[in-house]
Design a protein around this nucleic acid. Structure first.
Lengths: 221, 221
DNA sequence: ACCTGAACACCGTTCAAGT
DNA sequence: ACCTGAACACCGTTCAAGT
């Protein structure tokens, strides 16, 4: 049965096919479970065949970063519509994290310094630089938003990724008695509240930027 | 030489000794490099000796989370001084991340649901609930701050952690020509700017909370 | 060019045994 | 109770070889 499947999949390998299969495996089972050997089985080839397309597992993972980040819209400095632009980019980023819960932790820890990633970063930064903030403020606002987006992505995907919960969870009654504030927070943090929490923090950040802008400089100098 | 060292270290094992050695190794070489066998060599014992103290490598890592998070100050609802309290906690968290660059990525992805961690979370949440925000706002403000702090920790430790840079970095001239906004950002993001960037985002977040507070409710409901 | 198979140096972990 | 050594089922990767 498994062998039959493997035979049916004996289509030619390609970088694209390898990458899509890898992403799928990682998002299903988590980064920690991912191995070149399992990927090979999934592709219906030997583990070493993959090394014809990538010199190492790390190179493959780098290609995945490019593929995922490369799928994001490259923004352009828009002057007036910066708020709409940043909202769009932030939501797209979040959607990406939700689509790639297993792989996102790798992105979160990875330096985005390939050309494809720089292209995306450059677009984001150009929007910040066109807001009217001074250079330092704009850069730090970009960074703060980046921190927020990293945290969001890790949180929303964490249920699927390697970390997981501890072996011995604290029972609900204990939570109520000993950690009342945590119990109180519970109803806002579970599943359904994600959208609202995300938009809440995003609005905050953008409000902060808006408030920091110079007051529509009418009087010169 | 190495054998002599190993012999000298033949002091009795203990959970504490194992955990401190593990943290040290992880922060020196990164999570990906860490193995029970290397830890054993460092401790001057066999890999399997560690399994007398922890049923698995994961249990050991969980103990490290408890040790690190357990070292943080447990906050208490303070009413008026909430801003000072949150600044203190945020700075302490950041100092922790900087002290544990290799281990922080594990914390970032881990559910903090042990009693020790819940104690710390409960303290943090209680400060937010005592600000005067309504319950939903307070919870989401806590979450937003959490996202920010996760991002900060990953960023500041990323140079040491597994992700690392890509094999083929883009040359500086190319950066200037093709990614001018990234080049522009460079001078604010490198090393020295970390303190300022951190305080910038923190101020933002706390300003946001302050602005959201009900206007010192004098006229009754 | 594209893919394989055996082999090497690593892992985490089980198990039966030693003190 | 505390620690060990051999063994098992995994890894990523090298290398020499097959088509």
């Amino acid at each position: 049965m498994a062998e039959l499947e493997a035979k049916e999949q004996r289509v030619a390998l390609s970088a694209k096919r390898i990458e899509l299969a890898a992403l799928d495996l990682i998002n299903r089972d988590g980064l920690a479970e991912f191995s070149t050997r399992k990927l090979a089985k999934r592709l219906g080839c030997e583990a070493m065949s993959i090394y014809h397309y990538y010199p190492s597992k790390t190179h493959l993972l780098n290609a995945l970063v490019d593929r995922v980040i490369g799928s994001l819209t490259v923004m352009h400095a828009s002057g007036k519509d910066w708020r709409k632009d940043l909202e769009f980019a932030a939501r797209e980023w979040r959607a990406m994290a939700v689509r790639h819960p297993g792989f996102f932790p790798f992105i979160a820890v990875h330096r985005l310094d390939t050309r494809l990633c720089l292209r995306w970063l450059n677009g984001m930064l150009s929007v910040f630089y066109a807001t009217g903030l001074d250079e330092g403020q704009a850069t730090r606002a970009f960074r703060s938003m980046g921190y927020y987006l990293i945290g969001v992505g890790l949180d929303e995907g964490s249920a699927y990724s390697e970390g997981q919960a501890t072996a011995t969870p604290v029972p609900a009654e204990d939570l109520l008695h000993h950690y009342p504030s945590v119990a109180r927070a519970g109803k806002y943090l579970h599943r359904g509240g994600f959208d609202k929490t995300f938009e809440f923090g995003l609005k905050y950040l953008l409000d902060g930027i808006e408030r920091m802008l110079p007051r529509r400089a009418t009087s010169g100098g």
